[in-house]
């Protein structure tokens, strides 16, 4: 991605080298055709899924792998729907048994309108699943201390939420995200709440390795065009991070120098 192609700008999760800064969630698309086109436009390498019971009366109704299989994607199943570490571990084991690899996004949500992750259960599940050899990516609240604890528990990447799932409120606490990035030795993937490409660009500017986006693309008026917009936003955000933004200052600094100014006092001489 760097100009001149001197070296590839990549990052690594659980031994897998990734280039794309965009993880794509596959939920809530209008239909599989639009989803496939959006996946292509996003240039995402990591796709997320959920695990659910087969509807025995319509066994192909919800099946998803038929639409994306064999294209080299890294699959990231989640434990959505779980409310305890025990339930999340069970879902993770089932997901791994489905043959999609050993990555798991731990997602243990409190059952209320915020869907915020349960920090205690998330930590427990992360510890257990890391012991069992999973590549664990916990979805967590954006607390710097908790993120460090998750890393110590064996998380291969940490996924702080920008704001609650599906809200599109963006990154509510950029300060926390910066503190998390500063200390993390594993990639930080901002998950949840991203509403627009500018939110994604900000996450990358603040030092996140990538963002996970689902609703903001799937529910856009034109999901395919929005997937493309997000692809460009993460590239811009990453490029800006590498370029190094200017520090924020309270007062103005003229961007035109004042030497050799055509001075008012000298006018008419």
């Amino acid at each position: 991605m760097l100009q001149g192609g001197k070296h590839m700008d990549t990052y690594t999760i659980g031994g897998t080298v990734l280039k794309s800064r965009l993880f794509l969630g596959t939920g809530r698309f209008p239909n599989p055709h639009v989803m496939k086109q959006a996946i292509a436009a996003s240039e995402a390498e990591v796709l997320t899924f959920a695990l659910r019971r087969v509807q025995l009366e319509a066994v192909d109704e919800d099946a998803i792998l038929q639409h994306v299989d064999g294209q080299g994607f890294q699959y990231l199943p989640n434990t959505s729907g779980s409310r305890t570490a025990e339930e999340a571990v069970r879902i993770a084991r089932l997901a791994r048994a489905s043959g999609v690899g050993n990555w798991i996004k731990v997602e243990i949500s409190v059952a209320d309108e915020t869907l915020l992750p349960d920090p205690v259960e998330t930590l427990k599940a992360t510890e257990q699943l890391a012991k069992e050899g999973f590549v664990v990516l916990p979805y967590t609240s954006d607390d710097p201390v908790l993120c460090r604890r998750l890393e110590e528990a064996g998380a291969a990447a940490i996924m702080p939420g920008g704001s609650p799932i599906g809200t599109g409120l963006g990154i509510l606490n950029p300060y926390n995200l910066e503190r998390i990035v500063e200390k993390a030795k594993v990639p930080v993937i901002v998950d949840a709440g991203i509403g627009s490409p500018s939110d994604a660009a900000l996450a990358l500017e603040l030092g996140a390795s990538a963002v996970l986006v689902n609703t903001a693309i799937a529910k856009a008026k034109d999901p395919v065009a929005m997937a493309h917009a997000f692809k460009m936003a993460v590239e811009a955000g990453r490029a800006a991070r590498l370029a190094g933004r200017i520090p924020k200052k309270p007062y103005a600094t003229a961007s035109s120098g004042l030497e050799w100014l055509v001075s008012r006092s000298q006018a008419g001489r």
Partner: peptide, 10 residues
């Protein structure tokens, strides 16, 4: 018995 599979999700 539980019979499960991957479905769309974030």
């Amino acid at each position: 018995l539980e019979v499960v599979h991957l479905v769309a999700g974030g």
